[in-house]
Computed example of a mutant assay.
Amino acid sequence: MSPVIGVILMVAITVILAAVIGTFVLGLGDQLGDTAPQATFTIDDNSSQTINITKTGGQSLEAGDLVLSVDGERVNTSFPGDTWETGERKEIGNGDSGLSDWDSGEATVRIIHDPSGNAIFERTWDFS
């Protein structure tokens, strides 16, 4: 009876190894570590000079992993601080951003999780 159990275990180990190796060979393993975090935000009290964004929920975020985009252009500044916790408000100034067209009316504001390349927040805002 023990030779049968040994063969079954060897087949199971072979199948598991083949699945793991196949996953990484096909590139699926690279995508597993680059998932975007889950968080919610609100935009408030903005003007043509600043964008104020409050994190309203979700997991803690590394501020250095986040990029602000206005109408598809990445802002040339980072979010202040090391982490972004729920309830915290971040302010990005237009003068620091390298962009000069926030006062042109409506713009699409995005927060992009840079390691994964995914937008984790998107909203149209009127800067006039």
Rank of each mutant, 00 (worst) to 15 (best):
D30N: 15
G87P: 03
P3Q: 05
L28M: 14
T108L: 13
E122T: 15
P115W: 05
Q49M: 07
S60K: 14
I120M: 06
I120C: 08
I120D: 09
G27N: 01
D34K: 14
F121H: 02
E122Y: 08
E85K: 13
L28Q: 13
L61N: 03
F127Y: 12
V75G: 05
N76F: 03
W102Q: 00
H113G: 05
N52G: 02
R89I: 07
R110Y: 08
G6A: 09
T77V: 15
T40H: 02
T86L: 09
V70S: 08
T86M: 14
F121N: 01
T86V: 15
E62H: 10
T83V: 10
V11F: 03
S2C: 05
D82V: 11
D96F: 00
I120F: 04
G98D: 06
V20H: 02
G81Q: 09
A39V: 01
L32A: 12
G58S: 04
G27F: 01
D45E: 14
S78F: 08
I111F: 00
T23R: 12
I21S: 11
I16S: 14
T50F: 06
D45N: 15
T14F: 07
D126K: 11
V20C: 05
W102L: 03
V75R: 01
T42V: 15
A63M: 01
A18M: 07
G22L: 03
G33L: 12
W84A: 00
S78H: 08
T124H: 11
I53H: 01
M10G: 15
S60I: 13
D96C: 00
V20Y: 07
L9R: 14
F127D: 15
A39C: 05
P37F: 00
D44S: 13
V67D: 15
D126P: 09
S104F: 07
V75I: 11
E85S: 15
G87C: 05
M1H: 11
G27Q: 00
V15H: 10
W125I: 12
